[in-house]
Each structure stands twice: as structure tokens, then as C-alpha cells.
Design a protein around this nucleic acid. Structure first.
Lengths: 353, 353
DNA sequence: CTGAAAGCGCTTACAG
DNA sequence: CTGAAAGCGCTTACAG
């Protein structure tokens, strides 16, 4: 079998140079020369070189280019969790759709860091920083990212953009505005008469989790009250979740994970409650496509595809030597849509406002 | 913004060498040396170097390694159609799941060629051959591949594996056995009493399409008959498909694309037919997850995740300098499962065998 | 036991 | 107008 060591007889610039009767540097110039340098090469020579390049089907070795100091139009994509197993696919698929289409637009290839050792279900960024460097820049995807790791990446000067808001200083990102979206849903509930609001949030200190919680808590605070239940849950102890919920006397329940919302709604119905007549439930993300069919949740719909494409577009601008991206454009926040579903209605006990 | 030209002050082997008080080549040796070369370096020196490497968080530049002639544990993934738009996602997702998990196992990163110009809905492989070379080897995914392009790739010596059977000489692949799977479904229909068999196949000369058709035609031939309808259709003119089907008098219809099967079943029901009482329908692939809910088709279930992981495993073996893959192991065929659904039953008109 | 040196294929000042 | 040369950061014979 061919081995990668000796790429058969790879066509190089030197070979092209021989064939065209010029020096290797002239070949390189014809390929990459800036306009002013190029203009000094007679059109005839240039065309001859180009013709030979075409005939020989020559293409520059990207590793050599990279080593010589130029970009390769290669964007790294680092996912903190494996992307394709169906569990995560629904989270990543829409992001990747946006990233891929933008990559096509901008002429970038994508480097997926799939080799990074997974410990505790998550990939470690810096064990992989070597591979990172193969790319011109990198996109970071994941619910939670280590702040000090991010700061170290910033410091290293390696160009990157995170998807999702990040506290760490100097981190460029494209994020959904969960605060406003959640607050808006709280406001809608309030207007329907809900006063007892509960939140089941993910057991994580990721910024997006904090944002959704802050959106809810702050909006209630503005109206002079606070949630009757704020509970971190990974959805593994549904009975405990349900008990806590019932004790709280909440009339509307916000649940961060759609699958979790579905499970809770099943539990509620098993106890004879009707949704939304007896209990309103709001999900803070779109359900995954592969999920069991459940109620059509009233919910937050983050613009995932757009997050992906905008993140790559931003990275593209950062990488473009011709543009200097103003600091205030390094952090982009996109509005979060609200999808009207069938699980939010006026509370039974407080219909009389 | 930092530009990729000057990786800030990247730590290099030279720097490590200075810090450890050894030469740069010793650093490299400690990092990559074969056992016998290494054994000549005193354990003390080795440990000192390793300690400095760790402290300085040094990682080798992959571009330089690649240029110096070693692999980068980088596998290219070339999809003839964009992978993530939801239309193709269901085709690619399972493959990518298998590929990703195997990549993790083997310690490979994945290079997605997303920049290749798309013309006529398909990417051109050789316009991209440059980028191909960045990877140690490449996986080719797509329904249809240009035979001469494949042969050229074989000839170039670049290591690759196609997913799906390919006629072109010398092409290593991992494929599902559509012939046997389809034949088995024909046999089942036959045993139920079906004698008038129709096939609506994709309008493509891709090997997998030909295989499914051959499986059906040959199995019928073995039983001394032939299909009453063999129709290429891309599903755009359903009425014509339906008319042809009705004229054929078929009692069982094989449809290659699940979405197409769904559309036809709708049409049949609209005309008052019951499935499978009045017409059996068999799909030759699993429906995509995102699709509308339809009948639970009796169908072929190609082992897509396994195809992905086996393809990468095979490529891994091809790339491994320590192993020589025997020629007869360069083409792997995996059995195609059959999923019992609710759309195959004995024909009404021929229940009396 | 360890280092100096060549070479991988490029790009880019710098000479002529 | 075009070429020789240095350099990118590595690996790997080859000297000592």
C-alpha cells in the first residue's frame, strides 16, 4: 500500500518549474504573487506557467504552505462532546448546517477535532492544541467551556470564535439572547395570570444556563416577585423533580431541556393533570427531531443554524488580513425566537385577575 | 487581530531544547524516537526533556510534521453532496456517527472538504485534490461517484476508502449487500403469493441503485419471471409514477427512496386503496428521522453506522505502515438487515396459491 | 550518548 | 524581468 511518507511522486513547484523552463520561485510567484510583483512577470511567461500547472494538475501542498506562513482556508471545529452520536446530533446538527453552508460560501474546509481524548464525557481542548494549529482558526462548540482554558487560548493569539456567550475576557463569540427570550416568555405567562413560576434548569454553570435563569429571575424581580422553585436537575430523578414542583404550587413550569419537559409532562398527565389547563409548561429550547412525539411545547427557539453561519462569518472576518474587526463586533448576540405551542394557557386557579 | 502568519511566540522544539539543555534533535528523538534509538538516551535526559515539554505545554506543529514526512492522523471526508443540510443529514448522519466514533478510537481528526465548488449539486473531487493531500487518507461518501475520477485517485496512490460498492478497478470500499437484501425481500413477497412485482428506483447509475435493482430482477429471474414495472423516477412526477404502477397491475411495489414510498402510499390511499391489503409497499432504505410520520414500511435497513466505522477502520489499516492489507480484504461487504414493517401482506388477488 | 545537517515544499524579501 | 537563498518547524539518517 502507498504510505503517506512518500506521496508517490507528488508534483511539486520544482517539477512545474522544470517543465515551464522557469525557476521554482517564479512558479510560486505566479501562484501567489501580489499584483505588483506579478505585473513584472511577462504575460507570456505567466500563461505558460499556468498552462503547465493546469496540465500537471498541480496543487500546492497545504502543509508546506502553512509552514511557510500562509493560511490554508482551514477552520477547526472543536466540539466539547462528540457531535454525531444521536444524543448530541440534534444540538450540533443545526449549528453544523450553518457552519457548513458558510464554509462553502467562504471557501473554507472544516477540521473536526475528533481525536481529542474524552474524559468525563468531554474533550480536552489543550491536549489537542497541536491539531488546533493546523487550522487557520477555530470554532468552539459546547454547552460549557472552561474559562481558564479560554483565556489561555485568547492569550495564545490563536484566532477563534466561540458559539454561545462566554464570560472569559477577550473571547469572541456569537450567542443567542437567552436572557431576553426567557424574560419575554415569563412576561407572557405573567400576562396570562401566572404568579407562581418554577424553573427546572440544567445542573450546569454554563453561561447559557445562567442566562436563561437570569432572564426568568430578573423578569420576575421586575414584577416584584421571585420563582417559587429554582431547581437544578439533570432529569435523572424525575420523581424528586415532580415532588418539588408540586410542593411549590407553581402554575407554570419552565424546563430547560425539551426532553425533560416531555418527561415531566408525562408524569403530570399520569397524575391526572391536564396541560396546560392544570399546569402550563414552557421549554427553553427546541425539541430534537428524533425525540418521541410529545406535546407541541410553547418554547424558546434559538437560531442555531444562524449561530453557526454567523460564527464562521465572524471568524472569517477576524482571519481576513484586510479587515480589522472593531472590538464591539467581536461579540454578537442574536435574538431568540419564541415558538407558540399548546402548553401555555391561563392558570386555572388565578383566572380571575 | 493576530494573524496566522506569525503564531505569536509559538513554543518550538528549539525552545524546549534550550530549556532542557539538549539539542533540538534530541527533543525530537524523545518525542518520536523508535525504541532502539530512544534506549540510547539516558532515562534522566529523557525525563528532563519530557518534563520541560510538559511544563511549556509544547505540542509539535502538525504542518511541519506532515512536511517532514510523517502522518498527521488526519482523515479527509469527502461528501459529494453537502452533509448537514437536513435533506442529506439523514443519509450522512449515521455514517458520520460511525466515522466519528472510530476516529476517536483510532485517534484521528477529520477533515471535511466543505470548500469544494458545488456544480450541479455535487462537489468535484479533483478540484479539491490539493486539500485531499492535507489528510493522510480519505473517505469518500456519496450515492454516485465518477468512475474515471476514482481510477485516477487509485492511480495517484493516495490512500482512500469509498463507502458503498464501486465498480472502478482497485477501489477499496465498505458496502452494504443490497443485492442479497433486496433478493430476500423479493423472496418473502413471493412466498406470500406476489407474482406481479414493480420497482420504482432512483434515476441514477450509482452502484447501489444497480445492486438493488439487480437483486430484485435476478431473484425474479430465478423464479422464472420478471418485474411488471421497472421505472426510474426521481419522485417529481408522482402522478406519472402512479399511473405506470396501476397500469402494471403490480401487487407489490418496491420503492427505493422511503420518502418516495411515503408519497406513493398517500396517493394509493387517496384512491381508496388500503395498504397492504390492496397493495404491498416495500422501501429499500430506512426513512429519515425528520420525515413526516408514515406507515411503518417493511424495508431494507442498511447498517450505516457500521459502514462508517468499518470504512475508517479499513483506511486505518491501509495507512498503518506495520500492516499490509491483503487484496481480498480491501473490499468489505456487510449484510443488510430487513426490518419487518406493516406494509407487506399477501396479495388480495392471489391469496389462493 | 548527542549534535550538526539535510531535506520536506512552500513563500518572500533580496539580489542581480 | 527572474533566480538564489533563507526560513517556516519538524524528522531522520549520519557523524562523532
Amino acid at each position: 500500500m502507498t504510505n503517506p511518507q512518500n506521496g508517490s511522486q507528488r508534483v511539486t513547484q520544482r517539477r512545474i518549474a522544470e517543465l515551464a523552463g522557469v525557476s521554482q520561485s517564479t512558479v510560486s510567484l505566479v501562484l501567489n504573487g501580489k499584483a505588483d510583483a506579478l505585473s513584472r512577470i511577462p504575460a507570456e511567461t505567466r500563461e505558460r506557467v499556468l498552462r503547465v500547472i493546469k496540465e500537471a494538475e498541480y496543487v500546492a501542498d497545504p502543509a508546506a504552505r502553512r509552514l511557510a506562513g500562509v493560511g490554508n482556508r482551514l477552520i477547526g471545529v472543536f466540539t466539547y462532546e462528540p457531535a454525531f452520536p444521536s444524543a448530541s446530533l440534534d444540538f450540533y446538527a443545526a449549528l453544523l448546517t450553518g457552519i457548513e453552508s458558510e464554509a462553502e460560501q467562504l471557501g473554507y474546509d472544516l477540521l473536526l477535532f475528533t481525536s481529542a481524548p474524552v474524559s468525563g464525557g468531554r474533550r480536552s481542548l489543550f491536549h489537542e492544541s497541536n491539531r488546533l494549529r493546523l487550522a487557520d482558526g477555530c470554532l468552539l462548540l459546547g454547552q460549557e467551556m472552561d474559562g481558564s482554558e479560554l483565556e489561555r487560548l485568547v492569550e495564545s493569539g490563536f484566532p477563534f470564535v466561540a458559539i454561545g456567550r462566554r464570560d472569559a475576557a477577550g473571547v469572541p463569540y456569537v450567542a443567542a439572547d437567552y436572557v431576553t427570550g426567557t424574560a419575554e416568555l415569563v412576561a407572557r405567562s405573567w400576562e396570562l395570570g401566572h404568579r407562581r413560576v418554577a424553573l427546572l434548569h440544567l445542573d450546569s454553570t454554563g453561561e447559557s444556563v445562567l442566562d436563561r435563569r437570569a432572564g426568568l429571575v430578573d423578569e420576575l424581580a421586575r414584577r416584584g416577585t421571585e420563582p417559587v422553585l429554582l431547581r437544578a436537575s439533570d432529569g435523572h430523578d424525575l420523581d424528586a423533580d415532580w415532588a418539588a414542583l408540586r410542593d411549590s404550587g407553581a402554575t407554570v413550569l419552565f424546563v430547560e431541556a425539551p426532553a425533560h419537559a416531555l418527561a415531566i409532562s408525562r408524569l403530570a398527565e399520569a397524575e391526572g393533570l391536564q396541560i396546560p389547563r392544570d399546569l402550563s409548561i414552557i421549554a427553553l429550547a427546541d425539541p430534537s427531531r428524533g425525540t418521541e412525539i410529545g406535546p407541541d411545547f410553547t418554547r424558546l427557539s434559538p437560531p442555531r443554524t444562524q449561530l453557526g453561519s454567523e460564527a464562521l462569518a465572524l471568524l472569517g472576518r477576524i482571519l481576513d488580513p484586510r479587515t480589522e474587526v472593531p472590538a464591539d463586533e467581536l461579540r454578537i448576540t442574536l435574538p431568540c425566537a419564541i415558538t407558540d405551542g399548546a402548553t401555555l394557557a391561563a392558570p386555572r386557579t388565578e383566572t380571575t385577575r
